[in-house]
């Protein structure tokens, strides 16, 4: 009896240990590609970038990771989001942090298309501000190089396709941006709507996107497109272009018509009628009562 119990306990202990071990390895292993590990910010982290990073962090990260050093991350999640001031996080290179931030995993979302590259680096600046021993390595890449890149967007009405050609104009001539990650978005009220999936540019620096036939534009059918390219040499490149390729849509704004939620001047008629008739009815009764009281006073004189 005792024996079986010991055996059972040992088995349970083994299962638990294995499970914990798996959890820990799962928690640590982000499989960051070697070339991404060494990526660095093109700007130096200072008090301003830390401050900007804090505000980005407060909007996007604090709800799960909590405030660094406070240990108040959301414990109900699995895996528990680490406190980012912890040694385990600080051991990672900037490139690894940047990769984690870009890709996300399981319950951590990807911020690649949510935050600009600058904002993502600023968040890392903020996280690093909790590490006294941190020494920053600034990327040797020239941040201004991205300005040399041009994205030509061409729309084919018949096939409903967008062809994007990306090239940089160097002094030595045109350079095609090959095999770069490229994503297409349409601006909407809040944030951007990604069109299709991210692709890699071809050997000619070209990417082709199928454009949806039912995307609403403004009243003239204009859609604001955003092309985002990630290149190792030129960094993150954002190009904007407004094109008349959406369905013309002219819906009145929600606060244009009379409505419950609108301002007083745009109150619905039925409320105005009900409210004022109520107040008027009271006014009439009040006048009648005062008139009667006056009559009463006069009647006493006779």
């Amino acid at each position: 009896m005792l024996r079986t119990n010991t055996k059972l306990r040992a088995t349970i202990a083994l299962i638990i240990t294995t499970f914990c071990f798996l959890q820990v390895t799962a928690g640590n292993n982000w499989n960051v590609p070697a070339d991404k590990k060494t990526k660095n910010s093109t700007f130096k982290f200072d008090a301003n970038t830390v401050k900007d990073g804090e505000s980005v962090y407060t909007k996007n990260c604090v709800s799960c990771h909590g405030n660094p050093t406070k240990g108040n991350s959301l414990k109900s999640l699995n895996p528990v989001p680490p406190d980012l001031s912890s040694a385990k996080t600080q051991e990672l290179t900037d490139g690894e942090l940047f990769y984690i931030l870009n890709t996300g995993r399981v319950i951590m979302p990807s911020f690649n298309n949510v935050l600009s590259e600058e904002d993502r680096w600023k968040v890392i600046a903020y996280i690093r501000s909790f590490n006294k021993n941190y020494v920053q390595q600034v990327s040797t890449n020239d941040a201004t190089k991205s300005q040399l890149v041009k994205a030509d967007i061409d729309f084919n009405k018949n096939t409903n396709r967008l062809t994007i050609t990306v090239k940089a104009t160097e002094k030595t001539g045109s350079v095609l941006l090959k095999n770069d990650e490229i994503a297409l978005f349409a601006n909407r009220y809040f944030g951007r709507l990604q069109i299709g999936e991210s692709q890699r540019t071809s050997a000619d620096g070209v990417a082709v996107f199928d454009f949806p036939k039912d995307l609403p534009g403004d009243k003239d059918g204009n859609v604001k497109l955003v092309v985002k390219i990630n290149d190792d040499t030129y960094g993150e490149i954002l190009r904007l272009k407004t094109m008349q390729i959406g369905i013309p849509t002219d819906k009145p704004a929600l606060n244009e018509k009379r409505a419950i939620w609108n301002v007083l001047a745009k109150a619905p008629y039925w409320i105005i009628i009900l409210y004022t008739s109520g107040v008027l009815a009271f006014g009439c009764v009040l006048m009648y009562l005062l008139y009667s009281l006056n009559r009463l006073r006069k009647a006493g004189n006779n």
Binding site: V285, Y288, L289, S292, L293, L296, R297, A299, G300, N301
Partner: peptide
């Protein structure tokens, strides 16, 4: 208000009290 217990005053009081009694119900 010059109350003299005259029949007219009694009538006015009765009327107005009744009006209020009816009006106060919806209010």
């Amino acid at each position: 208000l010059n109350w003299n217990d005259t029949p007219e005053q009694k009538k006015i009081i009765k009327q107005t009290t009744r009006t209020i009694a009816i009006f106060i119900i919806p209010v």
